[in-house]
Design a protein around this nucleic acid. Sequence first.
DNA 1: TGCAGGGTTTGATCTGCATCAAGGCTCTTG
DNA 2: CAAGAGCCTTGATGCAGATCAAACCCTGCA
Lengths: 248, 248
Amino acid sequence: MAHHDLQAVSQQCGDCPIRHRAVCSRCEADELARLEQIKYYRSYEAGQTVIWSGDRMDFVASVVTGIATLTQTMEDGRRQMVGLLLPSDFVGRPGRATAAYDVTATTDLVMCCFRKKPFEEMMQTTPHVAQRLLEMTLDELDAAREWMLLLGRKTAREKIASLLAIIARRDAALKPKSAKGGIVFDLPLTREEMADYLGLTLETVSRQISALKRDGVITLEGKRHVIVPDFDRLMEQTGDDSDGGYLN
Amino acid sequence: MAHHDLQAVSQQCGDCPIRHRAVCSRCEADELARLEQIKYYRSYEAGQTVIWSGDRMDFVASVVTGIATLTQTMEDGRRQMVGLLLPSDFVGRPGRATAAYDVTATTDLVMCCFRKKPFEEMMQTTPHVAQRLLEMTLDELDAAREWMLLLGRKTAREKIASLLAIIARRDAALKPKSAKGGIVFDLPLTREEMADYLGLTLETVSRQISALKRDGVITLEGKRHVIVPDFDRLMEQTGDDSDGGYLN
DNA sequence: TGCAGGGTTTGATCTGCATCAAGGCTCTTG
DNA sequence: CAAGAGCCTTGATGCAGATCAAACCCTGCA
């Protein structure tokens, strides 16, 4: 429905590794040219910090490849992940000068950045961009609220199952078509990062994964490679309504 | 900075009880006329449900007076509040046909509603509205992420103190000027609603409030009327950075 | 005046997860 | 090949907050 979105825009150029070039028929040539001018790419390697909370941030960006996290840290070191950024997700806030969260690359990461000032100007003149950004932000807000239910009310086992289901679903959406014999994916997070995501300790994460393994809900090959023989079986462990997602 | 925002628009009419009429100099007369045509008011009394999760929802709205909550419920009855709507807050999602959460009036409530279809059309033609909505949604997302830190990592005492601080701050912002002798406000939520907000049980909420009272951090008159003699003292209990809020 | 019901407090006990601690696996580096 | 560093697992123990239960307070109403 959005005929000119940020991903499409950030993918106009030939060096962008994901998806096809998507030129929208209704986009004005000079809009694109303007975007091209304020756009640049940055790469980070796994573990590197993109920006620290409180730092000056004069760009907004969208993830091209890799995975990044947003985390908040309390003075005494307690950490909570508050965002998981996958390819096409947006970082940064027009109208704010400093970063509100630590942004970290958990895998090798490429981001497509736009300098903030010109980007904001473009938002004024190009309503599609603001509309698309609104849509993405509303999606993120929904995800955050789902996450709040998880943090506030789910048990450790339900939390782990939910996280696995989220990753499995996303992975299934990307891949052409998983084998019929079950869903297979690699965990993009360490046990500690999972713990920060779920509001648990890494020991509890480890124990609950072992428990799911013991109960035959999942199988592990190595520490990271997960096989889910029966996705419905996994979903039963999440505590969520079975009736899947609301379709818009 | 937004010269034409949703509240301003919803307050053009004389029957709107909050704030002054705010006519934006840059707003086109016919924009306003269009908004007037698709606008209507609805009232609910305390405790009433505005809409159930999954129900058809053919309007978007903003709170005029009173307080509403968004909650999610699991099949077995566990509940988590995921949004607290104060005057001027926005409900509903353009581009979604059904409600994703239960919306409940916790006090008597007046909402200014816009039928969804024409509202969406107006978003297309009036960029200011989409931009303002984006701003509001980003604010909500920030609040949700703060809330996630609370749910995932704070102790019961810190949760209670944080909630009191949030309410106190909001209240202070509304009132002309609190007395110098400390901040005073009424809790707009029952113990159970606070528990749903904080991911606790109502017993724990009650106990922690008693503890804060015992320690002299707060004083209670009746069950709902709170006196905070020293706001900094309360803030110390929240676990948050002392350096207050980032100013844009 | 009594009593019924919703909201709240407080006590006793239980339990899920945190904490503390040790050891295993795998990869890197000298 | 040894030594070290990350990351992960597993065990033992402790405690914050859940659960179960009882009683209190206030308001409305018969």
